[in-house]
Design a protein around this nucleic acid. Structure first.
Lengths: 340, 340
DNA sequence: AGAGGCTTCCAAAGCGCTTTGGCTATTTTG
DNA sequence: CAAAATAGCCAAAGCGCTTTGGAAGCCTCT
């Protein structure tokens, strides 16, 4: 059932039927009802390919997905996607994942924009002065960044959590508990979120005259193994930290294992706080010692990004509005006063 | 730059240019070279929307993604996607994720097929007599199932791993080591892979005159917490199992925690084998006691599924070929002879 | 030399929608 | 009451590609 057939069966022109269905004003309300009704009854759905060709809109949200044998998509992505999809579904949007060579995403961005394959894109895990940002900004496609970049002379729309504030609070708590030697096991130091977290932690320490030595920061890919290694190195030093803040639950698994291997205990010898993106399959309260966390649902973020993208596509949202979500500090058994 | 302009600039008809570009025979080889050359020089790329409208082919692989507040996409998905994307990239295919109400995926399948939004789909986590299979089969869109279903009167193309064989081997090893009370912590019992694993394990036990009692099987969603709970229940019974086979690494985390909480040891009191889909961020060799696993890279499976879908789209693959990959049994420290 | 067959090209008709530019009544306005 | 505005509808022109149905030119064959 296509427009032609439908309009013929209603003895109306395609123009009128099209307009009736798309809510244009120049059509009699009763006619509109007739049309709407017939469309529903016959299950008419406009062909998206045709509509896309005519309007240039695709009804899709795009994501350029870096791939390659050496590239690991991180498990956060699926949770984010889950939220994004949840919203997208209710608004008849589909997602287009365009795999790209991790070393050359630009070509792919240009292609999907030139071909009008998607109405908007979202960008994740931005770095300072991230080239993708500058690119989509000049390409002029609606976009939202999940996270933040830095060092641009233009503003851009983003959704981020208050990483700096979160880690500031975490560190502040530890300092208040008497800890003097803190360490940070961070994610990739080239990503903005990691920079912000470090910044927040330093700020909290500085407020009490403490510092975060170079040897007390580890920036690594967020795997269990890296968490373990980082923790071992830290804890085997001459003056080991008495508290660690850690950028992910998965790394925290490794930290806990390291602590055990060294015959230490949490929170007796070491206090631990980790950031929790809220995975259904790994929960901080189920750690051997319930883990204190800075918590923010990445899934909700996905839904919100989808919502804002939809708003941008339909012109409801404009400008470079940034949105920063506060992060909960959830204290559980893994923190205690500094050992004497 | 579109076809019209290009053909005009070459003083050829659109027909000829189109044919030259698409490799049709009815065009002079020299003309073809001229056309190809000019196309490349001017960076001409056919508009996919137009092509799609004309041909009905979209250049996309589809996946219907169940969503909803209660639906958790499992972290395996992202690894699979990673492999899929890796292959898709090299063949200029994009992925279309269509979010669907988890209770009504049919509507979405019908929509993407009717609208010709994708050239092929893949189906994951099938169940016996899975409705999606029957549906796509009648809808007549190329597809591949990742996993297997059962109980159909038609064949279908799939890629699966030898779950039954894997768990058979795992159980057989444990039996050979003298274990008599084995338990299985499985995934959702309604999914075929879980059924196959149970079947494999039962078969191994039966071969030695042993059985797997109802109380020695737990079928749960694959989270750390569920692994913990299942293990506790099993181990707190009057006659606890001396060996557990577990369907996922994530659940195995929980099992390990339960064992510790009960003051038991691996492999002294309990031998443990888990299935490993090969995540970059959680490796069995890094468990407190290196974990024995049945191993199969889900990422490679993703790449293979993409490859076969591409072959099906272009007509290179036909029929209902099933492909079953063998699974490695990797023995590490977590298994030992049954306690005396 | 004329019929038949290739080769190589083209004009034009889709694909199914949106949108422009009218056109005809009907209503409002001065 | 004529003129102007408005409401409601339509025909037709795109959007940019593929594909159908020729057609012209040149060979080959009898």
């Amino acid at each position: 059932m296509n427009l032609k057939q439908l309009s013929h069966m209603l003895s109306l022109s395609q123009t009128t039927v099209s307009r009736a269905l798309n809510g244009y004003p120049e059509v009699n309300e009763e006619t509109r009802r007739r049309v709407m009704d017939a469309a529903k009854r016959h299950g008419y759905r406009p062909n998206p390919s045709a509509r896309r060709l005519a309007t240039g809109k695709s009804g899709m949200i795009g994501y350029v997905m870096p791939t390659g044998a050496a590239v690991d998509i991180d498990p956060h992505f699926v949770e984010f996607l889950s939220g994004l999809g949840d919203y997208a579904r209710s608004h008849e949007l589909d997602l287009a994942l365009s795999p790209a060579d991790a070393d050359d995403e630009e070509t792919t961005y240009r292609r999907i924009v030139a071909n009008r394959q998607v109405d908007a894109v979202y960008i994740s895990s931005p770095r300072p002065a991230d080239k993708r940002l500058a690119l989509v900004n000049t390409l002029g496609i609606p976009f939202i960044v999940h996270g933040r970049s830095e060092g641009f002379d233009f503003d851009y729309p983003y959704l981020d959590i208050d990483n700096e504030g979160a880690f500031h609070e975490a560190a502040r708590l530890l300092v208040q508990l008497g800890h003097k030697r803190l360490a940070l096991i961070n994610g990739n130091e080239r990503e903005t979120f990691a920079i912000h977290r470090e910044r927040g932690m330093r700020r909290a320490l500085a407020a009490s005259g403490l510092t975060l030595g170079e040897r007390h920061i580890r920036s690594v890919a967020m795997t269990e193994e890296n968490g373990y290694r980082a923790a071992r190195r830290l804890l085997e030093e001459a003056e080991p930290p008495t508290a660690i803040v850690c950028s992910s639950l998965i790394m925290a698994l490794g930290v806990v294992r390291a602590v055990r291997d060294l015959g230490l205990t949490i929170p007796g010898d070491l206090s631990l706080i980790a950031h929790d993106d809220v995975f259904p399959w790994l929960r901080p309260e189920n750690f051997p010692v319930p883990l204190s966390t800075t918590r923010s649902s990445i899934r909700l973020a996905g839904a919100r990004v989808a919502e804002r993208l939809a708003a941008r596509i339909s012109g409801l949202e404009e400008g470079a509005r940034g949105e920063v979500w506060p992060v909960d500090l959830v204290v559980r058994g893994s923190v205690a006063g500094a050992p004497v």
